[in-house]
């Protein structure tokens, strides 16, 4: 792998890892006072999975930077500064759910593309599979908040749009990057924005409002 390939892959992996790392903390701190017991217990379990995924990605980045090293990898105490602004500034349950959904969809698309590329590893394929549960959880809660009463749907719409816009902009910057396509990190035929919009649109599908009437 060339230095440039290495740098691009590190940048992608660190952004996803940072989002997962920050989200893992928020899922415990904010999720502990979720709207019901089921949501809270699941939130804490999802936090563990997000932090576990972040650790795997940071370890991979460490190997990309330093080569294969035997023994214990350094402990991660803070993100590298690439986490999304809205994710870092998550303040409450509504923005937590909006950001959990958009960051998980983003990482699903990028890790999915990497798992189809020559850089794929078994753990990435496993991670893509595992985070599907997080997406189902976040999508269901997005639907519940979008169909709730009072000011909740308005606030949710606002937070969701902000989170969506930031993720779209980030994906668009990679979509338009010729180097990535040259190195086959994201295949020529993969339209990441289209994949993202498709997943995001599923929140507001007809089915989404069917059960809350």
């Amino acid at each position: 792998m060339s230095d440039l390939e290495n740098t691009i892959l590190i940048e992608l992996l660190e952004t996803i890892a940072d989002n997962k790392f920050v989200m893992g903390d928020h899922l415990v701190e904010i999720g502990i006072s979720g709207p019901n017991l089921e949501a809270t217990l699941s939130s804490v379990a999802i936090a563990q999975s997000e932090l576990g995924h972040a650790r795997i990605l940071y370890n991979w980045v460490y190997e990309l930077k330093n080569g294969k090293v035997k023994g214990k990898k350094p402990e991660i105490k803070e993100q590298t500064g690439k986490a999304f602004f809205n994710t870092v500034n998550t303040q409450n349950w509504i923005s937590l759910i909006a950001n959990l959904f958009t960051t998980n969809v983003t990482s699903k698309i990028i890790l999915g593309a990497i798992s189809d590329s020559p850089y794929s590893t078994k753990m990435i394929t496993k991670m893509v599979k595992e985070q599907q549960d997080n997406i189902i959880y976040a999508r269901s809660w997005c639907r519940q908040l979008a169909n709730d009463k009072g000011r909740i749907p308005i606030q949710f719409q606002k937070d969701f749009e902000n989170a969506k816009k930031e993720a779209q902009d980030w994906l668009l910057s990679w979509q338009n990057d010729d180097q990535i396509r040259h190195f086959e990190i994201i295949g020529d035929k993969t339209n990441v924005i289209e994949l993202f919009n498709e997943e995001i649109g599923s929140v507001f599908s007809d089915q989404a409002t069917a059960y809350i009437k």
């Binding site: 019901n36 017991l37 089921e38 217990l41 699941s42 379990a45 999802i46 549960d133 189902i136 959880y137 999508r139 269901s140 809660w141 639907r143 519940q144 059960y211 809350i212």
Partner: peptide, 19 residues
């Protein structure tokens, strides 16, 4: 047992709560 709005999230709740 638990409460959930649909079958999809019920499968997630079951795995996350009773793990």
């Amino acid at each position: 047992s638990f409460k959930a709005p649909d079958d999809d999230i019920a499968t997630v709740y079951a795995q996350k709560i009773y793990d």
